[in-house]
Simulated assay, not measured.
Amino acid sequence: MTKSLFRSARWIALATAGAALLTVTTALPAGAAAPQPPASATALGAWERIDPAALQASLGTPADGLFAGAMARVGGRDGQWTGTMGAVSAGPAASFRIGSITKLFTSTVVLQLAAEGRLSLDTPVQQLLPGTLPAHWQPITVGQLISHTSGLPRAACWDPNTVYTPADLVKTVTECPEAGEPATGPDIPQVYNGVNYFLLGMVVEKVTHHSYAHEVSRRIVRPLGLRHTYVPGWGETALRAPALAPQLPPTDPWAWAEGGMVSDAPDLERFLRQLLSGRLLPPAQQKLLFELPRHAERGFTLGGVQYAKLPDGTEVYGKTGSYGGYTNGVFATRDLRRSVVYSLVPLTTDDKEIAKRYLGIAAAAF
């Protein structure tokens, strides 16, 4: 296993933020008005045209006092547009911490391992990582970890002054008496939980005998030519390329396979488009990217992709992520007619305001 360490107090904050982002991305929060699509999106087929004015307006202005900056990159069959607002770099290679978008890289590596026969999605994690979870728990499969149907508890008895390895962090969370036992049964509710992806990172290292960072680079980053995408090493607090938001302080890359990666907008756009098009996975695993668990109407697919239906009915696939001062997302239509990458630098902590901003960007983009 890699020697990376993680601070559990920050993990709790990220898990909470990730759950909030999932809620507001797949369904409007209570009290938030649905953003209206731009005029170019109202007629059948007309939304295919990129509307630069509507997109720039969706980023807001510094005068609203809610965001220090915003960036969006929109691509598709009819061209490409990139815009910024406020104190963020306009350079296309400006890097940012992608947070839980990292999970898409993790699930892709695990699905590749399944395609190679090195594990099965039906394999209990207890079999792959003996002693990691309490012995009396019911089996939890790799597939359940990917789709957030593991039933694992989210609460943790954490000590803010303690630094944990991934295994110790999982142990702290899963053995917390306040968290209770995992949910069990044929239809375990889909509950967004970062612990699932810490475990998946550990599975990758156990099965391959290589570090998680090595496998992500070998299997995804290098084949796709993602020049500004990487898993930081422990203690690597500064970004390797100019930052999207230079004013943000250096941040420990503690979140690892759950949310620790760095990338930029062109790399994320290319990664998602190649993932959804079938470049990275064979057909048996590729179909899982678009299949929801049978008891889930929205949320995460069996392949770990976040599914959302926008207010105008457009269905998109991708992932949100938040870490180090950035609130991000990368989404595309299944036919890849349109994709969007956004990164916001919020000054507000109001989830409703943050949701309205990126739902507005989505409405203008799609």
Rank of each mutant, 00 (worst) to 15 (best):
V24K: 02
L5K: 14
T123Q: 13
D264V: 11
T2G: 05
R222T: 15
T25Y: 06
F271T: 09
F290A: 08
P242E: 11
D51R: 02
R240S: 07
F6S: 12
G131Q: 03
V316Y: 02
L111R: 01
T25N: 13
T208G: 04
P246W: 03
Q274I: 00
P293L: 05
K287M: 11
V340D: 03
L281K: 09
D350N: 15
L128T: 13
A32E: 11
Q144A: 11
P37K: 03
G180I: 03
P232Q: 08
V110E: 05
A114Y: 04
A46V: 08
E291S: 11
P166V: 01
P52N: 02
D351W: 11
F105R: 02
G117S: 07
T82R: 13
G235I: 09
A20S: 13
D168F: 00
A179M: 03
A114R: 11
H214N: 09
T2N: 12
V88M: 09
A284K: 13
S147L: 01
R240A: 13
V195M: 13
E258Q: 11
R222L: 13
P189I: 00
A94Y: 03
G151L: 05
A265V: 04
M85P: 06
A365N: 08
D159G: 01
Y317V: 07
A284V: 14
C176F: 00
V173H: 00
T162N: 04
R270L: 10
A241P: 02
A93W: 06
S211D: 10
M1E: 07
P311C: 07
R294T: 13
R218L: 12
G91I: 01
A284D: 14
Y326K: 03
Y326A: 05
P35A: 05
I361W: 08
F366R: 00
W158V: 04
L310Y: 04
A57E: 12
P182W: 00
L111V: 07
S89D: 10
Q80T: 14
P124C: 06
R227S: 15
L226I: 10
W47G: 14
K3H: 12
D122R: 13
A72Q: 12
S40A: 15
E258I: 06
R273L: 12
Q190S: 03
W137R: 03
V345G: 03
T251V: 14
L272F: 05
G45M: 10
E205G: 04
T327G: 00
D267K: 01
G318R: 05
I146F: 04
T229H: 07
G313M: 11
A33E: 15
T333E: 09
E353D: 14
S322Q: 13
W47H: 10
T320G: 09
V195A: 10
H209M: 08
V204A: 07
T172N: 06
A245V: 11
R338Q: 12
P266C: 10
A94I: 09
E116N: 00
V262S: 06
I50W: 10
Y342F: 15
Q138A: 15
A364Q: 04
L292R: 02
G235Y: 08
I361P: 06
T149K: 05
P35T: 09
S107A: 15
A9L: 09
S277Q: 13
G260I: 07
K171P: 00
Y342M: 06
L268M: 14
S322P: 00
R97W: 04
K352T: 15
G45F: 10
V191Q: 11
